[in-house]
Computed example of a mutant assay.
Amino acid sequence: MKSITITLPEPLDTQIANLAQESGLTLNDFFVEVTKDIVEQDEVRKRFMQRAEIGKDKVDAVLEMLRQE
């Protein structure tokens, strides 16, 4: 497992510590969970963009179908 050091401005440091405590997590566990959430959101965004790219050519056809109804 890799260890890193980060520098946080004082108000943010306090806010993060409070959030971690409210969540019942250590600071380390809190950062791990937040990081996993960010990575997951990025993966979802990438899948969405891939699907949007696949379907972009079909938009005109679908709109034409809707106009006919």
Rank of each mutant, 00 (worst) to 15 (best):
R45S: 10
S23D: 02
V39A: 14
I16K: 05
L8S: 00
K58C: 08
P9H: 05
E64P: 00
L19V: 07
K58G: 06
M1N: 08
I6S: 12
V62G: 01
F48E: 03
E33N: 13
L19K: 10
A20R: 04
G24P: 01
T14R: 15
F31W: 12
E10P: 02
Q50G: 06
D42Y: 07
A17W: 00
F31R: 00
F31D: 07
L12A: 11
Q15S: 15
D29G: 10
E43T: 07
S3F: 05
A61Y: 11
Q50C: 03
A17F: 02
K2N: 06
M1I: 08
S3A: 08
G24S: 00
G55R: 15
G24V: 05
E43Q: 14
T7Q: 15
K2M: 05
Q21R: 06
F30H: 08
Q41K: 13
G24K: 04
D37V: 12
D13W: 13
D13R: 13
M1Q: 07
M1R: 09
S23F: 02
A17C: 06
E40I: 09
E64L: 10
Q41V: 05
E53P: 01
M65N: 07
L25R: 02
E53D: 12
R47C: 04
T35Y: 05
M49H: 12
I4W: 03
L12K: 13
I6H: 13
V59M: 02
K56V: 11
E22I: 06
S3E: 14
D29L: 11
M1K: 04
T26Y: 00
D37S: 13
D42R: 08
V44K: 11
F30T: 06
D57F: 05
F31Q: 00
M65F: 03
F48G: 04
D13S: 14
K56S: 15
I38G: 04
D42I: 12
G55C: 12
E43P: 00
